[in-house]
Every structure is written in structure tokens, then in C-alpha cells.
Nucleic acid binder design. Structure first.
Lengths: 127, 127
DNA sequence: CGCCTGTCTCGACGTCCGTCTAGCCAGACA
DNA sequence: TGTCTGGCTAGACGGACGTCGAGACAGGCG
């Protein structure tokens, strides 16, 4: 392990402020690309994109898995697998309350991705 | 073929206006998810994310492949393959001029993706 | 005209992904 | 306490993906 220090830890996907300027303005650093790419990858499936949308647009900010599963022509385990992928990508959080499991979006990383793709300059806290 | 009208053709990834409201506001329709997911998938690789960034942030709006290849520890064919993936996802355009091939970003689809992830309401209708 | 440089295409190989079936665990209710 | 329902995990299989090497094609230059 001859890693040269911890240059990766600085990238916080849950921070409110974007980690990097939009990719149209400056080349994305390799470290940031390694961290952010899995999030894009997780959204790179039609089912997961819809799941993410259903979770993020939920009225109460959260959705029961029991409402997610019947919306697709897929078995329960498959939906569960996709939700796990979204969870491991840091896009959603899961919480069990009684009988049901509820999923909730993490706005921080969504902001990161949006900022990276945005055409406008990053008008956030960083001066 | 008892399709009720053409619901798929309306999704134009190169349009300036977003095809759908942000995914935090309304569930992404299945048709849109099928069209948009491949673009996210194409960005779901660290190499392609950096390639996309290098192309989109280029000074002159375009980059020569000969400037892209040496930036990675990968062979020429592999970079070419990644560029082809970006091309097939509609994210970039390629043009041969003389000896070299130049790549250029397509801002339309980038806007689509950014709008989909944005937290703010869609300020689309305004031209 | 012939050679050189730059880039893409094709084929191959190992790995990862999406989906399924089967089975297990946790909580609710009688 | 027994049973039912909801959701996750484990294992397997077919297909797609990432990478490479070899070869082909286009353009420039002497």
C-alpha cells in the first residue's frame, strides 16, 4: 500500500457544494471521475432511472418498496437488486419501519451530478 | 400495431428544451427512461467521464483524438472504443479533417441530462 | 507513386451485469 | 405461539462490457 496520502477523501458526495466545476468548464480530475462515474452508472439503467425518479419525486420524500415493485414487470428480488445498486451508489437511503421498507433520495449526490452536467457556471458557495 | 399515436418519437435528445421535468418532481416516463438511460450509462465509466469532460471543456469546442489518447494509460483502440460509445450515446460528434479526427460535444443532450437531475423547477418553457 | 503516420474496425477473452428461482429472516396479527 | 406477508440474500445463467492485438483504410509528404 504505497498510496501517496489520502487525496481521495476530499471528494464528499453528500456535500451541498459541488465537488468540481461543470465538466464543460474544466477537465474532471481522475479521482472525481472514479467517484462520480458509479453514480452515473447506477442511473444508466431504465428501471433504476425510473426507480430513482419515483423515490426522488415522492410526496412524503419517501416510498415504500411495496409501491415500487408492482410498477414494473419484474420480480421482487430483481427490484430489490436494483434498489441495492442505487443504495451502494449513494443515491438513496433505506429504512425499515415495521413491516415495510422505505426508500429516500439523497439530494447531495444528485446535486453533485447536476452541477457536473450543468452548462451554467457553478454559482455556489465557492467564490 | 395498435399503438395509439407516436409517443416515442417526441423525445428529442438534441432539443434545447428539456424533454421531461426534473426527476425529483415527477416520475420519469418509461419511454424517456429508455432513451436517457444509455446516456447516463455512457458516462458511467471513469475514462469516458473524463473524455467527455475533456471534449466538452475544450478551448476551441473540439479536441483531436491525438490529444485524448496520451492522457490515459490505455491503448489507442480502447480509447477509440470509448469514444465510439460516447458517439453512439449521442453525447459527442466526430469529424475527420485531414489526418486527424476531432470530437465535439453535443450540448443538447447534456442539457437534457442536467435538467433531469436538477433540483430547481424546470424553467423550460421560457425560450 | 510509395511510404509513413494516425485512427478505426474486427475478433477474442475475461469479467461484470441483469434476471431468475429458491430459500431465509423480520414484523404483524389472531 | 403459530402463521402469513413483505423484503432481502444466495446461487446460477445468458448476455453485454472493457480491454487488448492485428489488420485495414485515409491523408500527408517526399
Amino acid at each position: 500500500m504505497s498510496k501517496q496520502g489520502p487525496p481521495l477523501a476530499v471528494i464528499d458526495l453528500n456535500a451541498d457544494a459541488p465537488c468540481c466545476p461543470p465538466l464543460t468548464q474544466r477537465r474532471v480530475p481522475a479521482e472525481a471521475a472514479v467517484v462520480l462515474a458509479p453514480a452515473f452508472k447506477a442511473l444508466g439503467d431504465p428501471v433504476r432511472l425510473q426507480l430513482m425518479s419515483m423515490i426522488a419525486s415522492a410526496e412524503d420524500g419517501e416510498v415504500c418498496v411495496c409501491d415500487l415493485t408492482p410498477a414494473f414487470d419484474l420480480t421482487g428480488p430483481t427490484i430489490s437488486h436494483h434498489l441495492k445498486t442505487l443504495r451502494e451508489a449513494g443515491l438513496v437511503d433505506a429504512e425499515r419501519r415495521g413491516t415495510w421498507v422505505y426508500y429516500r433520495a439523497r439530494p447531495g449526490i444528485l446535486r453533485q451530478l447536476a452541477a457536473l452536467l450543468s452548462i451554467e457556471p457553478a454559482l455556489s458557495s465557492q467564490a
